[in-house]
Write a protein that binds this DNA or RNA. Structure first.
Length: 425
RNA sequence: GUGGGUGUAGCUCAGCUGGUCAGAGCACCAGGUUGUGGCCCUGGGGGCCGCGGGUUCAAAUCCCGUCACUCACCCCA
């Protein structure tokens, strides 16, 4: 055995059995919902051609410039561990020409994403996302549905404190105009901006708006807003969406500074935030991306989607003291006394399990007392005791853990009488 | 990538102005009941005090490095 212990990589961690039920709970909830809303699961590779993300997410975004797990394979191609899910889904949509077979596709995915960042609570290098994409419609009804599924998901989990933040970035005609007027506005204020913002102004001026430096905030307050640069269509789109949200009682706040970091967003962008999460407060982010499909090489196809952060959701659940329903306990624990009985116990365990019961036993020939302790801890309703006395008369002793009541039951009858005993209250 | 905090048994932590400082509670195991759990009592196993180096007669305790976690920034799920 080697002396140096190999541990998981930084920002990546193991999900031990005691928390996996929480994950299942979230996944099952999401799957049930997607099925009800008509979204089908799609699974795509975790590794893709680096170009996919560079083109899709944006060459100049932080994700692409400094957060991707990129490496060369044995033939020198540049590959990247997916940093998000949408680009892959769209790639598959285009590659398999779903636009002609199923032009309007509602898809979802669940899986790990990778970003090389400095880990922090709720932020890891491998993290899981649950995402949905509705590809092939520009209707605001879709924006509404997307937000509504996400909202419904969080409600199903039991959240009370989520805040929905909404904005519109405008269409591909509005965005450049807006960027231009931001540059003009900040042109003479350049020296007063933080160094980061000076660079942002160049690369992605929208991001200056959500800078957290006090001085920048103050300057940004007087800056032109997205609202002022929306064309008539975009304005109407946003109004319709807000009306739908209002009429279905989904509270939201319009935040003209909500920008988001991926280049592909157009028009609607939104975020669900949880106040107890600290700086990394978003549990879900999404929006419309009307140009991405075309950018990836497909026909012009509007689309919208979101992605929920698993870890962030889990942490928020903890802070709101929301828990998954408890995992089911085994029904019975078989205790044996003596070597002959130990063998019989193994056979009986197998037999009962084959009838569909969840049964546990002790494999080590421990003392009866120790086995009873195990039985007690495993939370079973019944302990089945097998010893020389019982074996001699071809029966087993069945003990109700709650009351201590015991009865002798012939081995042949166990199979039929156990379910009965388990059903009675 | 930047700055601050932390790192002692499986878990939560005490000890940290250097010299019985390797401890507590919980958990685990055993005995008290030669075949019976939950409560109680008694006993026990378990830690190269994150790792490496330095200062010193002597370091968990001071210094440096490193790794990990954590908070904020960056960014975002």
């Amino acid at each position: 055995m080697s002396k140096t212990i190999i541990s998981a990589l930084r920002g990546m961690y193991d999900l031990l059995p005691d928390i996996v039920p929480q994950w299942h709970h979230i996944e099952t909830t999401a799957r049930g919902l997607f099925q009800r809303y008509g979204y089908s699961e799609m699974r795509t590779p975790i590794v893709e051609d680096t170009q996919l993300f560079a083109r899709g997410i944006g060459e100049l975004t932080d994700i692409v410039t400094k957060e991707m797990y990129t490496f060369a394979d044995r033939k020198g191609r540049s590959l990247t561990l997916r940093p998000e899910g949408t680009a892959s889904i769209v790639r598959a949509y285009v590659e398999h020409k779903l636009y002609s077979r199923q032009p309007f596709s509602k898809l979802y995915y669940i899986g790990p994403m990778f970003r090389y960042e400095r880990p922090q609570t709720g932020r890891n290098r491998q993290f899981f996302q649950i995402g949905a994409e509705a590809i092939g419609s520009s209707s605001p009804l879709i924006d509404f549905e997307i937000i509504e599924v996400a909202n419904s998901f969080f409600r199903s989990i039991g959240f009370k404190k989520l805040v929905l933040i909404l904005n519109s970035l405008g269409c591909s005609k509005d965005r450049p105009r807006f960027a231009e007027s931001l540059r003009n506005y900040f042109a003479d204020k350049l020296p007063m901006l933080c160094p980061d913002c000076r660079e942002r102004l160049d690369r992605n001026p929208l991001r200056v708006l959500d800078c957290k430096v006090e001085n920048c905030k103050r300057l940004a307050a007087g800056a032109p807003t997205t609202e002022q640069h929306l064309c008539e269509d975009c304005k109407r789109h946003l109004d319709t969406l807000r009306e739908l949200l209002k009429r279905s009682a989904i509270e939201h706040v319009l935040d003209p500074r909500l920008v988001r970091g991926l280049d592909y967003y157009t028009r609607t962008v939104f975020e669900f935030q949880h106040p107890a999460l600290g700086a990394r407060s978003a549990v879900c982010g999404g929006g419309r991306y009307d140009n991405l499909v075309e950018q990836i090489g497909g026909p012009p196809t509007p689309a919208a989607g979101f992605s929920i952060g698993m870890e962030a959701t889990l942490i928020a659940m903890e802070r709101e003291e929301l828990h998954a329903p408890p995992a089911p306990m085994p029904a019975a624990f078989i205790c044996s006394v003596g070597e002959a009985a130990l063998t019989e116990a193994a056979l009986l365990t197998a037999k009962l399990r084959n009838t569909g019961l969840s049964v546990e036993m002790d494999y080590e020939g421990r003392s009866l007392k120790a086995q009873m302790k195990l039985a007690n801890r495993s939370g079973v309703r019944l302990a089945i005791i097998l010893g020389d006395e019982e074996l001699a008369q071809g029966s087993a002793r069945v003990r109700e853990m709650a009351t201590g009541e015991e009865s002798i039951i012939p081995l042949a009858d166990l199979e039929s009488s156990l379910p009965e005993k388990l059903n009675q209250k």
